[in-house]
């Protein structure tokens, strides 16, 4: 780290893997001032601080605006007076119902895919590469496109198909419903589950697997008795991250099942439902009197934010414990 410029005088260009280290980068004169001020650390440090401040400002604003209205009654009561008063219980219930259904679909499929990538497919086989490309692409599809897909495939194609086959063409499943919304979200969150699970499986010591095979266990027995128990924390983390992601998504459920307002709670798979994020959207754009609704709206946003943050924190915690277990 010596900045003695004497040694830099007659250095010939040094090629290090395509990046040419030449004497000018070390030359003293022009950058002496910069060196003294060390501009880059200050500049980048300032930019980092700005990012932190952005988070703080958003959080602070929402906490300050929403904490006052966050009462037990708010969490457990129904909306009243055209949703300008009362609580958000149906939205909380709908969100929980939605994400539970979603995990029921997403976790088995995600875990199976991770197992396939790690223990069935050869890493460089065409199939494994194709699955990886598919998962990568799935992660990049915009959420609104998932909404279109949910409507076009699940509601219009699968739902209508079920109606034709089992309900004599009467409307039962061929309409927006919680099952279609949760399936759409399951497809959207699949990459999260796959990536997290695979990461956890990568951390399982090879000895465990080899010991299992050496004892005469089949591949499936090894997976069921060794791989899955040992990657349970990772699977759980993936599920939690998926839930956190899914609970915050609005665009995919707008046309596949979320309702503006419902006087009843969803009880069947083909019911519509209220959801926190969608409720925020509805209240902030379609409320007859925004000023009057604002405190309620802030509290709803705070509940949504707390829910997703609590889930994320839980995932971080589990991951830390996992890391400690294998480190120790």
């Amino acid at each position: 780290m010596s900045t003695d410029s004497a040694i830099t005088s007659d250095l010939s260009p040094t090629d290090v893997g395509g990046i040419t280290l030449t004497a000018p980068i070390l030359s003293g004169r022009k950058s002496r001032l910069m060196r003294k001020l060390s501009l880059l650390p200050i500049l980048t440090g300032f930019l980092t601080l700005c990012v932190v401040l952005m988070l703080v400002v958003v959080l602070w604003n929402i906490i300050a605006g929403g904490i006052g209205g966050l009462t037990w009654e708010f969490l457990t009561a129904n909306p009243t007076e055209g949703m300008t008063k009362g609580g958000i219980f149906p939205a909380i219930f709908g969100t929980v119902f939605l994400v539970i259904l979603m995990t029921i679909f997403a976790i088995p499929v995600g875990v199976a895919t991770a197992i396939f990538l790690r223990y069935y497919a050869r890493p460089d086989s065409r199939m494994a590469r194709l699955v990886r490309v598919a998962v990568n692409n799935l992660a990049g599809v915009p959420s609104i496109v998932f909404g279109l897909f949910g409507l076009g495939f699940f509601v219009q194609f699968v739902g209508r198909g079920i109606d034709k086959a089992f309900y004599g063409g009467n409307l039962a499943f061929g309409q927006p419903a919680i099952i279609w919304a949760s399936l759409t979200l399951a497809v959207l969150t699949l990459p999260v589950v796959i990536v997290t699970t695979e990461e956890a499986m990568r951390a399982i010591p090879r000895d465990y697997i080899e010991a299992s095979y050496a004892l005469g266990a089949t591949r499936w027995q090894t997976i069921w008795h060794v791989v899955i128990p040992n990657s349970m924390a990772g699977i759980l983390t993936g599920g939690i991250l998926a839930v956190s992601r899914g609970a915050g998504e609005v665009a995919p459920i707008m046309f596949t099942g979320a309702a503006y307002y419902l006087p009843y709670l969803p009880a069947k798979l083909n019911d519509q439902f209220m959801e926190l994020g969608y409720h925020v959207y509805v209240l902030s754009t379609q409320s007859p009197d925004v000023e009057k609704t604002l405190p309620l709206l802030y509290s709803t946003v705070l509940v949504l934010l707390l829910l997703t943050f609590a889930l994320n924190a839980l995932a971080v915690l589990i991951r830390m414990r996992l890391r400690m277990r294998y480190a120790g």
């Binding site: 990012v51 958003v58 929402i62 959420s143 915050g248 998504e249 609005v250 994020g277 925020v280 949504l304």
Partner: peptide, 8 residues
């Protein structure tokens, strides 16, 4: 920051 839902 990444965990803030886009609707929020």
């Amino acid at each position: 920051l990444a965990g803030i839902p886009s609707v929020v």
